[in-house]
């Protein structure tokens, strides 16, 4: 499929905060109440349109357990955007944000756009972290912030797309060197990619995404 740019994203955050569910909602528009746990890394892809340009998102969905940090660290490399996710019903997942952020800043390129996401906003009755706290944390660390619900799909599109918009603006401003793939941005092939998108299983995921 032809695209103008390809952005690499990485989704990080504690285990069980809903990283894989956010990805599934974004790529397949569905929600699985009980998702398999992620070991190592899983992937998703979807095409979006920004400013009339086709942008392909290549999303790396990482395992959240502390033990896997040393593995997932190597996946920050070459990411243009990161979704840092916590669970608004589990205070400890919010408390761990600082560690995650340090990790991300240390192992990624300095221009990586980070979106802070408070997930499970549908579970208002079990909320442990106020929205204002999330906003304050984001302000303090220069992140974009959103509360989402992978279950109801609330703000899920926006979270992924707003991140892409921010990256796109940085490209326009010349902050990103798009010729350096280490920045997590690739310019699309001049012609429609000839590598046939296989329709089986995984290929469909991307096709299902469509654009906004």
């Amino acid at each position: 499929m032809a695209y103008a740019y390809l952005f690499k994203y990485i989704i990080i955050g504690d285990t069980g905060v809903g990283k894989s569910c956010l990805l599934l909602q974004f790529t397949d528009k569905r929600f699985q109440p009980v998702h398999d746990l992620t070991i190592g890394v899983e992937f998703g892809a979807r095409m979006i349109t920004i400013d009339g340009k086709q942008i392909k998102l290549q999303i790396w969905d990482t395992a959240g357990q502390e033990s896997f940090r040393s593995i997932t660290r190597s996946y920050y490399r070459g990411a243009a955007g990161a979704l840092l996710v916590y669970d608004i019903t589990r205070r400890d997942t919010f408390n761990h944000l600082t560690t995650w952020l340090e990790d991300a800043r240390q192992h990624s390129n300095s221009n990586m756009v980070i979106m802070l996401i408070g997930n499970k906003s549908d579970l208002e009755s079990r909320r442990e972290v106020k929205k204002e706290e999330g906003e304050a944390f984001a302000r303090e660390h220069g992140l974009i912030f959103m509360e989402t619900s992978a279950k109801t799909a609330s703000n899920v599109e926006e979270a992924f797309i707003n991140t892409a918009k921010e990256i796109y603006e940085k490209i326009q401003e010349g902050v990103f060197d798009i010729n350096n793939e280490a920045n997590g941005i690739k310019i699309g092939p001049q012609h429609a990619a000839t590598n046939s998108t296989l329709s089986g299983g995984q290929g469909g995921q991307q096709a299902g995404g469509g654009c906004c």
């Binding site: 992937f43 290549q58 995921q205 991307q206």
Partner: peptide
């Protein structure tokens, strides 16, 4: 016949 992302998706979630 796949590119990186399709191979990665395919292998981390093998078709049923």
């Amino acid at each position: 016949h796949m590119d990186f992302i399709h191979m990665a998706q395919f292998l981390t979630r093998l078709p049923e």
